[in-house]
Design a protein around this nucleic acid. Structure first.
Length: 461
DNA sequence: CGCAATTATGGTATCATAATTGCGGTGCTATACT
């Protein structure tokens, strides 16, 4: 039955892992939380469900670029009733879309957009088939101290008279799943959880007191595409300066212009750039199949983020590698980040106690939330969050210092046990990096991306 | 915490060193400006 619909709309004959289960759960009218491995076609779950339900499918998406990808992928299946409602639209376009909402089948929007009064009003007048939270770990990861609107989605859900809700993600710990459920899902939700393990990614940690030397040594082992993650923009640019003469490399972080980011992503995905040095700004929605290695020049702030970042390797199923370089003290930058939120929280406490007048933008958002759940509750949430962050960093460190199997430690973070130990499991299980490649021919004739950009800009002036 | 940039100090060197300060991740939206 479902297979027929699958064939009709998408041309496939069989479902991939988890898809059918999720669609069935949604069609039965259950709030559903699905943790499906990367690259298994999570979006098909809501697309297919949408076709079998009456009304509009509202998809909450964290990034404009992600919305654009999804819209164009739907358009490729000849679906025209699809729109991304975001700040790229003019006021007139936005008003038009809101007036004609009933003509659409799929609407993509950020939490910020959905919370706008005129958007809520328009949606209220509409039959909602399904509310989808894509990349649902953002509710927990970003919803507290970065994009609080993520938590206020519960207000959106209420205003829409509690439509069936589907939360989708590739990685979530038990704590995060519970948090998502408590924030946005009914009590009798259906949890569909598959393993987060990626057996074709071998895990390595290299402790060193000369990270750059270790990086160069590590890079010798690879000829395919790879990402190098750093914790700060400054480190990204410094490393770029050190590598740019000898590698075909670009860099990416949140300080770059949108256009630049698009060019870089495109160049990396198409293979024009072999290496990309980036902060955690890079990665969500990246579907390049043949990334062979992920090197962490700086550790991540949590195993949740770490597994997301290394999970971008080996989507084609071929052997790939995750190497983390650790130097004593690297974790302090993450302590610093948590201090920022701590100071923001302390400011908010003074504000509530009327000892302070001025507010930061973030504090304003928290104030809004306080009107919904109360001042006490907000402060409690923030304090809890600080504790959680500390614990997450500790878990990251315990992975680095683990003496048993790294995969086992990583999976334990997601309440999973290691079943079959892959051939190339981890450095503690005797895994080896591939043999060093024959030195590459000089890349002197290849322009660096900045030079290419510069030329483009000059041509346009 | 750690590093780099800026400012202060000493005592008279268009300078060397010390002390202080600033900065460090992830994105949405709206609005005014060229």
């Amino acid at each position: 039955m479902l297979e027929e619909t699958l064939h009709k709309y998408f041309g496939y004959d069989t479902f991939r892992i988890g898809q059918k289960e999720v669609v069935e759960s949604v069609l039965q009218g259950n709030d559903t939380l699905a943790v499906l491995p990367t690259g298994t076609g999570k979006s098909l779950c809501y697309q297919l469900s949408g076709y079998l339900l009456e009304g509009l499918v509202v998809i909450v998406s964290p990034l404009i670029s992600l919305m654009e990808d999804q819209v164009s992928s739907l358009q490729k299946t000849q679906e025209k009733r699809v729109i991304a409602l975001n700040s790229l639209l003019t006021k007139e376009e936005k008003r038009f879309v809101l007036r004609k909402l009933n003509q659409y089948k799929f609407l993509f929007a950020s939490p910020e957009m959905l919370l706008q009064p005129e958007v809520l009003q328009a949606l209220e007048r509409c039959k909602i088939a399904l509310l989808v939270i894509d990349e649902a770990h953002c509710v927990s990861q970003w919803g507290i101290d970065f994009r609080p609107e993520y938590r206020q989605l519960q207000r959106v859900k209420k205003r829409l008279k509690d439509p069936v809700t589907l939360a989708l993600t590739a990685t979530a710990t038990k704590l995060v799943r519970n948090d998502i459920a408590a924030t946005l899902l009914k009590e009798n939700l259906n949890e569909i959880v598959y393993s987060v393990d990626r057996p074709n990614i071998a895990l390595f940690v290299r402790e060193t007191d000369d990270k750059f030397a270790t990086l160069e040594e590590t890079l010798k082992h690879f000829s395919g595409s790879g990402i190098i993650y750093c914790a700060t923009r400054k480190n990204v640019e410094e490393l770029y300066g050190l590598l740019k003469d000898r590698w075909n490399v670009g860099y990416y972080h949140g300080g770059l212009e949108t256009n630049q980011r698009k060019v870089l992503q495109q160049q990396f995905s198409s293979g024009q750039l072999q290496l990309l040095i980036a902060t955690n700004a890079f990665g969500m929605g990246i579907n390049k199949p043949d990334i062979r290695f992920i090197i962490h020049y700086d550790l991540s702030d949590s195993l949740e983020n770490y597994i997301q970042e290394i999970g971008r390797a080996g989507r084609d199923g071929r052997q790939s590698y995750a190497i983390l370089l650790y130097q004593q003290g690297d974790e302090y930058v993450h302590h610093f980040f948590s201090q920022i939120t701590q100071k923001e929280r302390e400011g908010l406490e003074r504000l509530f106690a009327h000892q302070q007048e001025e507010t930061t933008p973030l504090q304003e958002k928290w104030q809004n939330q306080a009107q919904v759940i109360g001042e006490e509750a907000v402060l409690q949430l923030l304090t809890q969050n600080e504790e959680m962050k500390k614990q997450r960093l500790q878990n990251m460190l315990s992975y680095i210092f683990s003496t048993g199997c790294r995969r086992e430690r990583l999976l334990a973070n997601f309440e999973e046990e290691l079943g079959v130990i892959p051939d190339q499991c981890c450095d503690l299980h005797g895994a080896q990096l591939p043999d060093p490649e024959i030195p590459r021919a000089a890349m002197a004739t290849v322009d660096h991306w900045q030079e290419i950009l510069l030329k483009l800009f000059k041509e346009n002036i």
